[in-house]
């Protein structure tokens, strides 16, 4: 079943609200970002007010209403990682892909943001690329990790 059909089915069963977060996550992954057009379409399919869908889409950090690259890098900036020199990792990544946190590379390959604790403080400094968690980072490893993501 394609996504549009699936969403209509959920809407018809009246499960729009219950499934909203899952649908938004999936839509964010397939469209790259939740544009106003996507939100209007989802709201119609799920039979929910546009404002409600927009409200949810802007609340959570894993959903995004701004365009993102194919791979999203999230580097942890919380205290335990900070104590383990996360700033060096942030600088190394910024230099390697030549963008600052909050930006996306011109070729759309990477987006890069800073995040709060991701629950890997025993392996600080840590980061996520898409759903994968990388811990015990050193600047030397960054190039290898980035090369894994096309």
């Amino acid at each position: 079943m394609n996504m549009t059909a699936k969403i209509r089915e959920i809407g018809k069963q009246g499960r729009g609200r219950e499934e909203l977060l899952a649908v938004l996550r999936e839509a964010r992954e397939s469209y790259g970002c939740l544009t106003p057009e996507v939100i209007v379409e989802l709201a119609a399919g799920l039979d929910l007010p546009v404002g409600e869908v927009y409200g949810v889409a802007t609340f959570y950090s894993f959903l995004s209403t701004r365009p993102k690259g194919r791979n999203n890098i999230r580097i942890c900036k919380s205290i335990p990682c900070f104590l383990k020199d996360s700033q060096i990792i942030i600088d190394t990544v910024a230099e390697a892909i030549d963008i600052q946190p909050g930006e996306t590379t011109a070729d759309n390959r990477f987006s890069f943001e800073l995040t709060n604790c991701i629950g890997a403080c025993d392996k600080a400094p840590a980061m996520m690329v898409n759903h994968r968690v990388y811990g015990g980072l050193t600047p030397a490893e960054i190039a290898r990790i980035l090369a894994e993501h096309k």
Binding site: R17, E18, L21, Y60
Partner: peptide, 26 residues
């Protein structure tokens, strides 16, 4: 299993239930 979408406050029980119901985690 219900997956969150990135929000510390959703660990608070009432916000968590809002989120589980597909709403903003307030």
């Amino acid at each position: 299993i219900y997956e969150g979408a990135g929000a510390y406050v959703c660990g608070e029980e009432m916000a968590l239930m809002e989120s589980l119901e597909g709403k903003r985690g307030e």
